[in-house]
Design a binder for these strands. Structure first.
Lengths: 166, 166
DNA sequence: GTCTATACCCGGATAGAC
DNA sequence: GTCTATCCGGGTATAGAC
């Protein structure tokens, strides 16, 4: 494992444990037993590290959705499962934080392509479906539903609404 | 206008212009021509100021939804309009940032009550509908849709899916 | 490639004079 | 109720020795 890979692995680990806020040049360096300035021999700046993590997360999510097959329910379940398994990685690719200029072309689109497929080519429907999944995940991760809420039922109700023909 | 109100007004103004990140004790104080330490004569800490802004935002959103009436389309349009008009206020009440322990009881629930109504008492459906609206707003505000995307159509497609009887 | 030392920002918050 | 001065923490990043 190259030093570069080691840095990324440590950063991802740190991200999973402490969220984006816990990700600093100092903590990443400490994680592998070096000093923060040494990181700049391998990455030009912090954004480069974040962008690498985002790219990895987007690819991972895309692969998970791809593996779920074409069924709407399966895709929804896969989306939710991936987000709940890696909540901080999901946070890193949500919001305005995406370093678009540093991502490989198409990698962002790939992560929502699975949902597009399930909408049978209807773009407006596909976007609404994506928004539904994203919204459900965000609300659940942020703890916005009551503690005793049945989130699975909300997913089922949402997907059911979209499963009927337009 | 009391000094306290003046501080909140300045903070809200600052929030609208620079987002949550631009909201610091120093910038708020500068906005009304005093020094940062003076703020602590009026609020115990920064979280108290943020909580006040969140409470105002939640009440404002709730009022807007209430004024929209019972029609699903109208509520959806009102939700989107409020969020696009006050994107940074929406950011302040999204995510994990809510100071729940400092908010008046019920004020959080009131901001999503309008959507509950439109779901005719079906809780799972109501939550999915809320997630759809939240997701659409977040994706639009974050610029996650292509520049030429027709977001209105996505809203229409999403609301249409929910307007059919379960 | 890694180190130490450091520069330069930013932030929240407190002490004590007036 | 406001001030000045200050503490303490955080962060990104650079210079220069080894």
């Amino acid at each position: 494992m190259s030093r570069r890979d080691e840095i990324i692995a440590a950063a991802e680990d740190l991200l999973d444990r402490g969220g984006p806020a816990g990700l600093s040049m100092r903590t990443i360096a400490a994680e592998i037993g070096i000093q923060a300035p040494s990181l700049y021999r391998h990455f030009p700046d912090k954004a480069a590290i974040e962008a690498t993590l985002q790219e990895r997360a987007l690819r991972s999510l895309a692969a998970r959705l791809d593996a779920a097959g074409p069924q709407l329910d399966a895709i929804g379940a896969a989306y939710r499962e991936w987000a709940l398994t890696h909540p901080h990685r999901y946070a890193l690719i949500s919001g305005q934080a995406l370093h678009r200029d540093r991502l490989s072309p198409g990698v962002e689109a790939a992560a929502s392509a699975g949902l597009q497929t399930a909408a049978h080519g209807d773009q407006a429907r596909a976007r609404a479906l994506w928004a539904l999944a994203h919204g459900l995940v965000e609300l659940e991760l942020a703890g916005r539903f009551p503690d005793d809420a049945d989130v699975s039922s909300a997913w089922a109700a949402g997907l059911a609404a979209f499963s009927r023909v337009g």
